[in-house]
Design a protein around this nucleic acid. Structure first.
Length: 303
RNA sequence: GGCCACGUGGCGGAGUGGUGACGCAGCGGACUGCAAAUCCGCGUACCCCGGUUCAAUUCCGGGCGUGGCCU
């Protein structure tokens, strides 16, 4: 049986990249990044991007291909993914998407509303307004303009209220309206082999802690230092461990405290990822990477 | 050994004679362009024993424990 693409999802530190690479070597694939943070070139260590040696073993796309100073987004990733898919086709290799960003997988398989990018000034203005009057008040204003979308949002959710507000401001159309008709999914009608790596909870926690230690030793602190002064509003500024590490560099936190903070944040993130996978990807093939591996799983369904 | 203070959920930390704040961690959930983000929900914890009281976590006595001071 032939697959148009392979999808590999899993929480942080579950070994997605390794499994994806092994499969790519086995079946002649290209590994395509589906992780919102591994796209940033300034932080290969802190985002656990595959090493140069690993990338040499099989083609990898969308890893470190943008700057942390860019306001990257799912929308842009979707464009990049379409292009990556085309390149895979040219190379004659099977696209293997690997990552932990649920929403990116959603863009792949369910589609995303085709909303024009918000002009920077509209976004800046909306953000300034939010800072000025607060979320509740912004939600109230949204209710005046776009009651439908407003009614679907919690007045306490700054991110979504802001998004709805700026979309209405820049397009004059309700976000709910836009979302009514999502654009075709990137992998429309594709034949997919989809997997979720699901290591036991204890194993996950242990690996997160262990991996973060290694990141520090491998130069994670220098990466964090180099990103000092990054606009906190940028997506890359939310990188796990960045804040605590910068605090460590400045001496505001001890090494132990910084490590604790970063590890706790990673655990909490992994929990959110699992919630998404459990509810959005129940039809994927789930397996425990401590017990099985992707090549075995893949061979089961290819037979 | 004596004196003083304290003893609240996994941790930190308010408070009260009758319904036991809150923060953190943890757990569950949501999720359509910042998503490693954002938001929502979840806790019979008052050291032990006796006494007072209609009612003790709260008052009294004793015990145990912790910290400090003193000899």
């Amino acid at each position: 049986m032939k697959f148009d693409a392979v999808l590999i999802a899993g929480p942080t530190a579950s070994g997605k990249s390794h499994q994806a690479l092994a499969l790519a070597e086995e079946i002649g694939g290209v590994v395509i990044n589906a992780d919102s943070m591994q796209v940033y070139r300034e932080a290969p260590i802190l985002t656990a991007q595959p090493s140069a040696a690993e990338m040499a073993r099989a083609p990898h796309l969308l890893y470190g291909h943008v700057s942390a100073r860019d306001a990257y987004s799912v929308g842009r990733w979707r464009e990049d993914a379409i292009e990556a898919l085309a390149r895979a086709r040219v190379m004659g290799r099977v696209p293997i998407f690997a990552g932990g960003t649920g929403m990116y997988f959603m863009a792949l398989t369910d589609g995303l509303a085709d909303i024009p990018a918000t002009p920077a000034e509209v976004r800046d203005n909306a953000r300034a307004l939010l800072d000025d009057i607060g979320v509740e008040a912004l939600h109230a204003r949204l209710t005046e303009r776009d009651p439908l979308t407003a009614s679907k949002l919690r007045p306490s959710d700054p991110q979504r209220v802001l998004r709805a507000y700026e979309v209405f401001e820049s397009t004059g159309r309700s976000l709910a309206d836009w979302q009514e008709a999502p654009a075709a999914p990137v992998l429309k009608d594709a034949h997919l082999a989809a997997f979720v790596l699901d290591p036991p909870r204890e194993q996950r926690r242990a690996r997160i802690a262990e991996r973060f230690e290694k990141m520090l030793e491998a130069g994670g602190l220098e990466e964090a230092r180099a990103l000092e002064g990054l606009d906190p509003a940028l997506p890359a500024a939310k990188l796990l461990g960045l804040r605590p590490l910068q605090a460590l560099a400045k001496g505001t936190l001890t090494r132990g405290e910084a490590l604790d903070g970063a590890i706790t944040a990673s655990r909490q993130f992994a929990k959110r990822q699992m919630t998404w996978f459990r509810h959005r990807m129940p039809h994927y093939i789930w397996f425990d990477p401590c017990v099985s591996n992707l090549i075995t799983q893949f061979s089961h369904i290819s037979a």
